[in-house]
């Protein structure tokens, strides 16, 4: 569209890119740098270098618990999201009556603030919530309310509720871009419905499911609002970081060290995960 000297067009491109790059460097790169530097400073000082905060945190026996909890919550909720998304998307793909409504329903956890989702879930699954009332009235042998809130399985459930749309939307869009001719070919060749699903459809949409699961994992790993209000005594890394600066005096350096550990763990896990994913596909 534009014809000019190459230098001029390069300049124009750079100029057009500059707002995006400025926001990236100013609002992400520089803050990350500040976080790194702060994590290496002695608490409350602007000079000197130390690895003290990393060492103190990693030596604490709690550190291992916190890190394991973070991984357990995010991996378990990612798996649950995949298990929920697959049947849901296979059903929604058939364009049953009212499928538009269920499609929108699928998005709702993503358009409301996580805090409110957490509030609603706490009320629903609380000892006086409808789930427990239902269990006590319908299921025999359950006379006492089942503890769901503030437990690890409960948290996994909450995480799944909040973050499964990433997986299901990606799965659904992959499923819908699937060529129906492939399935027809399989069933013409004599495969029954189950075989078509098991050997044709699922392997073909697997990349979509896995891509969605990466999104769910990232969101769940960085989850902050849900464990903050619904975690109780279970504090994953994000909440642990926030607790460092929530008190006076705020321990910024300690918080920054934990944040760097968290970012490193997430990037490390994702790198491994992607490597594992790529191998069979590529």
């Amino acid at each position: 569209m534009r014809r000019g000297s190459p230098i001029r067009s390069t300049l124009i491109t750079l100029l057009m890119l500059s707002p995006g790059l400025a926001s990236f460097f100013g609002l992400f790169f520089y803050p990350m740098l500040v976080t790194i530097v702060r994590s290496l400073r002695p608490e409350g000082q602007q000079v000197g270098w130390t690895l003290q905060h990393y060492i103190t945190f990693l030596r604490e026996p709690r550190a291992r618990e916190v890190i394991i909890l973070t991984f357990v919550l995010s991996i378990a909720s990612t798996l649950c999201s995949m298990l929920l998304s697959l049947p849901l998307c296979l059903v929604l793909r058939q364009k049953l009556r009212g499928h538009r409504f269920f499609r929108l329903t699928m998005l709702i956890p993503r358009v409301v603030p996580g805090l409110i989702g957490a509030l609603g879930l706490l009320l629903l699954f609380g000892s006086r919530g409808w789930v427990n009332l239902f269990l006590m009235q319908v299921v025999p042998f359950i006379n006492e309310p089942v503890r769901i809130n503030y437990t690890v399985p409960g948290l996994i459930l909450f995480y799944t509720w909040l973050y499964f749309p990433f997986t299901s939307v990606t799965t659904l869009s992959t499923l819908e871009s699937l060529d129906p001719a492939i399935e027809e070919a399989a069933s013409v060749s004599g495969a029954n419905r189950w075989q078509v699903l098991r050997h044709v459809v699922i392997p073909l949409i697997m990349p979509g499911i896995l891509a969605g699961s990466v999104l769910t994992f990232m969101a769940a790993f960085g989850a902050f609002s849900i464990p903050l209000v619904a975690g109780g005594n279970y504090r994953p890394l994000a909440v642990e970081i926030y607790r460092q600066i929530d008190f006076t005096p705020a321990r910024w350096s300690a918080a920054c060290a934990r944040a760097m550990i968290m970012a490193a763990l997430q990037v490390g896990f994702l790198t491994v995960y992607m490597r594992v994913l790529r191998r069979p596909v590529a």
């Binding site: 990236f24 803050p31 500040v34 960085g222 970012a263 997430q266």
Partner: peptide, 21 residues
């Protein structure tokens, strides 16, 4: 990928830096 990086790193990590700046 670089521009999208803020959506991949946990927000709390750079929120700390943003707050200090």
């Amino acid at each position: 990928a670089m521009i999208l990086l803020p959506r991949m790193i946990p927000p709390i990590a750079y929120a700390l830096g943003v707050a200090q700046i």
